[in-house]
C-alpha cells in the first residue's frame, strides 16, 4: 500500500519534469514526435528501475556512515559518503552502456531510432536525480527505492509523451516569430507544470 502511494506520488505530485525540472535537456530535444518520445521514456524508466536499487544497496551497505559495520567492528566508523556522487554516476554510466549494447543486439530498429539519445541517458539529470533523492529521503527498504524509481520513470514518460503529442499539433498554429521552437515549448512546459500542480493535494 505504501509502495503504491509512493508510486502515485512520484508520478503526479513529485513529477521529475514538472516539479523538479530534471531531465529537461532531452525532454526539450526529443519531444518532437510521439514514437521516439515513447522509446526514450521507456529506456529512462528501465534505467531508473535498475540503477535505483543498485545504488540503494551501495548507499546502505557501503557508502553511508557506519554502513560498513557488516565487515567487522573496525569498519563501523567509516564514512564513505563523500564518494557517493562518483559511485552513483559510475553505476549509471556503466549500466547505460549495457542497456545500449543489449538494445543494439536485440532490437536494432529501436536502437537506430533512439540514436544519440541512448548514450545521453547517462547524463540525464532525472536518473542521477533519482539516486540523489533516494539518498536524501532515506527509504526504509529496497522495495520502496525500486517503487520510487518506477514511479519517477513513468512520470517522466508521461510528461515527454504528452509534450510530444502537443508539439505535433503545434505544427498548425501561428506562433509569434521570436517564440517559435524553443520559446513556445518552454511556455507549454510551464502551463503543463501548472496543471500538474493541481495534483499536489493528493493523499492516499
Amino acid at each position: 500500500m505504501e509502495a503504491i502511494s509512493l508510486i502515485v506520488r512520484s508520478i503526479f505530485v513529485d513529477n521529475m519534469i514538472f516539479a523538479y525540472f530534471l531531465g529537461m535537456c532531452s525532454f526539450l530535444a526529443v519531444s518532437k514526435d510521439v514514437k521516439t518520445a515513447m522509446g526514450l521514456g521507456i529506456a529512462v524508466t528501465f534505467v531508473l528501475v535498475i540503477t535505483l536499487p543498485i545504488n540503494y544497496l551501495l548507499e546502505n551497505y557501503v557508502l553511508k556512515a557506519g554502513a560498513l559495520a557488516w565487515l567487522g567492528d573496525d569498519f563501523a566508523n567509516v564514512d564513505l559518503s563523500v564518494f557517493s556522487l562518483l559511485i552513483f554516476i559510475a553505476i549509471i554510466a556503466s549500466f547505460t552502456q549495457i542497456v545500449e549494447m543489449v538494445i543494439e543486439r536485440f532490437s536494432p530498429a529501436l536502437y537506430s531510432s533512439l540514436g544519440i539519445f541512448l548514450p545521453l541517458i547517462a547524463v540525464n539529470c532525472a536518473i542521477l536525480g533519482g539516486s540523489l533523492f533516494m539518498q536524501q529521503r532515506e527509504f526504509s527498504n529496497i522495495g520502496m527505492a525500486t517503487a520510487y524509481g518506477f514511479g519517477s520513470g513513468i512520470g517522466w514518460l508521461l510528461a515527454i509523451v504528452g509534450m510530444a503529442a502537443i508539439r505535433e499539433k503545434l505544427e498548425y498554429s501561428n506562433v509569434p516569430k521570436p517564440l517559435k521552437g524553443l520559446g513556445i515549448t518552454f511556455i507549454i512546459t510551464a502551463l503543463m507544470a501548472l496543471g500538474f500542480m493541481s495534483f499536489a493535494g493528493i493523499d492516499m
Partner: peptide
C-alpha cells in the same frame, strides 16, 4: 517552479 520556466521563455 513553473514560473521559472515562464521567465526563461
Amino acid at each position: 517552479a513553473p514560473m521559472a520556466i515562464l521567465l526563461v521563455a
